[in-house]
Amino acid sequence: MKLSADLQAFERRIGHSFARPELLVRALTHGSISSSTRADNQRLEFLGDRVLGLVMATALLEDDPQASEGQLAPRFNALVRKETCADVARQIDLGAVLKLGRSEMLSGGRRKQALLGDAMEAVIAAIYLDAGLGAARDMILSLWGERVARVESDARDAKTALQEWAQARGQKPPAYVELARSGPDHAPVFTIAARLQTGEEAQASAGSKRQAEQGAAATLIERLEQET
């Protein structure tokens, strides 16, 4: 099987040339265009999630031999979560080579975080099946790059920091309230307020509830720390 020019260019972006190119094609095939003769990437996504987890857990243990499980867990979660996978997918322009059905394409599927994250995991699995764990590990660590080095500070995210601030003062955990939702279904914008028991609050808007919550928490914790 010979890959198209755009898929060959994608191989160069991920740094792996497939001995079994059909694995790459399957990894990039969304369920909206699958058929009895064209398998989608769901099973590969399942496997790729586990391969990514193993590689990241090993990398974190090697990077910090003294870290406790409690310290490692949030770092691990920050590296393997769907948002991070989608960020890496955007970095290599994975959306441009996704194989989607017409309705999914028209609804902005090439930009959707969930689709990009799933496909990134499927590509990891495809490399694992094509060339083994070593090749998958090399690709993961190359593409995740500095994220692994900076994960300790990233893992203590704004929501965690705000919750710790409130608990240290005997308050209940912050509440996150959705104030508004705008935009089309394929590209919504959420406005969220982070609100403390004592009434202080801050707002933020983003394309996902999680990002809006993080933005609101970051604004509020920055304000509170400046005041104190």
Rank of each mutant, 00 (worst) to 15 (best):
Q91R: 12
F46R: 15
S34M: 07
K172S: 15
A5F: 12
A67G: 09
A202S: 14
L106T: 12
S103D: 14
Q226E: 04
P21R: 00
A59R: 15
V51W: 08
Q203N: 04
Q42M: 10
T191E: 09
K82N: 12
V189G: 01
L3Q: 09
E201H: 08
E146V: 14
G31H: 04
K159A: 11
A122H: 01
L100V: 09
S153R: 15
L24E: 07
E69K: 14
L60G: 09
Q211H: 09
V55P: 01
V148K: 06
V189R: 13
A96R: 14
E227K: 08
G95P: 00
L116C: 05
L54A: 10
A5P: 08
A114F: 02
A119W: 01
A161W: 04
G70P: 11
L115S: 10
F46M: 10
A218Y: 02
R156H: 11
A119F: 01
Q171Y: 13
A59W: 05
I124T: 13
Q66L: 12
A158G: 02
D185L: 14
E11D: 02
S142T: 15
E222Q: 13
H30P: 07
R156C: 09
R110K: 14
A216S: 03
S32F: 10
R38K: 15
S17N: 11
Q42T: 14
R81P: 00
R110N: 04
I127K: 06
Q211N: 11
A57Q: 13
